Structure formats: structure tokens, C-alpha cells
Amino acid sequence: MTDTRSRALDAAVTLVGEQGIRALTHARVDERAGLPKGSTSNWFRTRHALVAGVTAWIAERERADFAAASGDAPRDADELIDAFSAMVAAETGPFASRSRARYAMFLEGAADPELLAPLLAQRAAFEEWMRALLAGIGITPDHDLTRATMAGLEGLVLHRLTVDPNAEIRPVVARIVRGARVR
């Protein structure tokens, strides 16, 4: 059984992902998690602590997902396109709420470096992972190329979350990856 802290954090991520950062209150988290009143505030005494906890939890969950999905590294562009397409599909499908929450937390943390730190650490780890994947298929990934590839994938995720949830994935990802090969 999941401990109360994990239940509270999972519920908080869902709340932010579905209703935005303003929905994040201790009482709403308790209710969503099916916890007794006051449970969330036992773990996170202030709203700032709750927001910081959610930010760190999102980064932790995403790192675990990336580690689980990293298995065999793609050997060529088609395998990399498949891997990135699956990642975008997951981020805009089963993990859509968490993706929305991550974007909300980035915006919330824009004025608070302490809140932003776990997400920036996650982003740096993701950038290293991205660089290794590109190098693994024969692309020499400099800093700009890695960031451009990430920006293209993030843009597709954001587009599917906000504008067109049915937007095609693979053709866009293929263009991003194949464009990275042209130097």
C-alpha cells in the first residue's frame, strides 16, 4: 500500500494537472487522496512546502519513468523516432495530467529558484540522456542541437496538451530527428 505522503503527492499532481496551480490546497489534496483532514499538512506544513514537494515529486516520478524506459538504446534513427514518439504519446496520454502539472510548476517556479531547482535538475539529466541517445545513432550532439531537439519534442507535447490532442506524433518526431542529422 502506498504511504500517505505518496498518496498526497500523487493527488496533488493530479489536482494541478487537471485544475491548475490554484487548486492546490491541503484540504483538496486530502480529499482527492482519500486521506483524513490534515494529513497533507502533516507532511507539508505550508503551501510553499506543498508546492516544493509536488515539484520534487514530479521530477522524481519522471526520472523513474525515464530509467524504466531507457532499456536498450536505439541503434538508428528509426528506433530513436519510435522511442521519442512513444515518449510523446505517454506524456500526452497516460501522463498528460503530470505533464500539465510540470508546466504549471515551471511557471510557478519562474520567480522562485528553490521551487524550480528539482525541475531544472531533472531537465539537465534529461538533456544528458538526450545527448547520449543522439550520439548513439551517430549524431554529434552539441549543446544547441540537443536543446533544439528537446524544444521540438517539448513543443509537440505542449501542442497536444493544449491545442490538438490528436495531432500526429511520428511525422513530427521524424522531422525533428532527421533534421538533427543534417548539419
Rank of each mutant, 00 (worst) to 15 (best):
V13R: 01
G20P: 08
I58M: 04
V16D: 04
W57T: 00
R5D: 05
H48Y: 01
Q19D: 14
T2P: 05
R28K: 05
V13S: 02
A27I: 13
D30K: 11
E31W: 02
T46H: 02
W43R: 08
L50Q: 08
A27R: 15
T46K: 10
D3G: 15
S41G: 05
G17K: 06
T4Q: 15
T14K: 05
I21Q: 03
R47H: 09
A33N: 04
G20I: 08
A27H: 15
A27E: 11
L50R: 02
I58T: 01
A56G: 08
W43I: 00
L15P: 08
F44T: 01
L35Y: 14
V16I: 13
T46Q: 09
H48S: 15
V29H: 03
S6W: 07
R5E: 12
V51R: 01
D3V: 14
A33H: 02
D10Q: 06
L15A: 04
A8F: 10
A23C: 03
T40I: 05
I21G: 03
A8K: 01
T40Q: 12
A33T: 08
V13P: 07
H48P: 03
L24T: 10
T40M: 04
A56N: 07
D3K: 07
N42F: 12
D3Q: 13
V29I: 13
V16F: 08
P36M: 02
H48V: 14
N42E: 02
F44D: 00
G34I: 05
A8V: 07
R32Q: 15
R7L: 13
F44Q: 01
I21N: 05
V54L: 06
V51I: 13
W43Q: 10
L15T: 02
N42H: 15
V13G: 10
G34S: 08
I21L: 15
A11R: 00
T2C: 08
S6A: 15
R47D: 11
I21T: 09
R7A: 09
D3P: 13
S39G: 01
L15V: 02
T25I: 04
V16Y: 09
T2H: 08
P36Q: 13
H48A: 15
G38R: 12
H48K: 14
G34T: 09
E31S: 12
N42V: 11
G53C: 10
A56R: 10
L15D: 01
G17N: 04
V54E: 02
T14M: 07
S41W: 02
E31D: 14
R28G: 14
D3E: 09
N42T: 14
T40S: 04
N42Y: 15
I21C: 02
D30V: 06
G20M: 05
A11P: 11
T46Y: 00
G20E: 09
V16R: 04
